[in-house]
Design a protein around this nucleic acid. Structure first.
Lengths: 138, 138
DNA sequence: AAAATTCATGCAACTTAAGTGCATTAAACA
DNA sequence: TGTTTAATGCACTTAAGTTGCATGAATTTT
């Protein structure tokens, strides 16, 4: 059985053709993608199907959504090694304002923040903006 | 002359009726508001005018836009004491997933992050999510 | 002060992304 | 095989953001 097929099944996602293709598509990139990016990579499939596919992935912990401030949702594969759902979201993201790429800095965790009395933190989102390694020395 | 009128003029914004009202509206809140929130607070004005007004404020450093992950842009007044434009954006924001309020934690700055070689940071956005002080002890 | 210019406002329309309803098709299971 | 459950595709809707253009108000120039 295919490797990707295994991953999907482990996460309780039925391995249909579209899903296998989308997983491969995401895996072969190292940047987060919008639904439009995905759409451009697939000739056949309908936009709605792709939308629902990525949402299915998200619900089952295969991808996480990233809000980089551009106003358009992006998605990136979770680390396959991760067991804890919440640890995924606690890494930070870098958004290059030049090439518009957004990447996961998975080994950069968000530092702890002390909040005022009464505030309970359940999740955090940190996006750094600037020039990525490809765009900084141009 | 009105106090608000002075503030606008200092920032090179002509103090029209709509602008004075919107400034007062924002000042009397302690949460960030969406364009819809603003619209609800004004019977008379047109949506476009309010949109352009808040964008004018933003351009002239009177407000900053906050992206709290809800998908809708929010705005909050800058600290009037600030001289540096960039220091405004470096405080962090808290978004309550219960009441949907988003507030500026102006005296909580974003800690420094060491990035890999080649990355240049120009801006950062940190949003903590969870329960605010009003919603946590319910 | 009148004319000219610049800026603000209001209305309509457009764009883009996100999301839903429903019928059809495919897969899984009893 | 027949039944049920899930996935897909098409059409349509919603919501936020944004622009074009004509009108109205304010500021500047003559």
């Amino acid at each position: 059985m295919d490797e990707i097929e295994k991953v999907l099944k482990i996460h309780n996602v039925r391995p249909t053709a579209t899903r296998l293709l989308m997983y491969k598509f995401l895996r072969d990139l190292n940047v987060a993608v919008t639904l439009n990016d995905i759409e451009s990579g697939f000739d056949k499939s309908d936009r709605t199907t792709l939308y629902r596919t990525i949402k299915t992935f998200e619900k089952h912990g295969l991808v996480h959504q990233i809000d980089d401030g551009t106003g358009v949702a992006k998605y990136a594969l979770d680390e396959p090694t991760s067991t804890d759902i919440n640890s995924q979201s606690l890494h930070l993201h870098f958004h290059c304002t030049n090439c518009n790429d957004t990447i996961c800095l998975t080994d950069h965790k968000i530092p702890h923040i002390n909040l005022p009395e009464g505030f309970i933190t359940r999740d955090m989102n940190l996006v750094l903006k600037g020039f990525c390694d490809k765009c900084s020395h141009v």
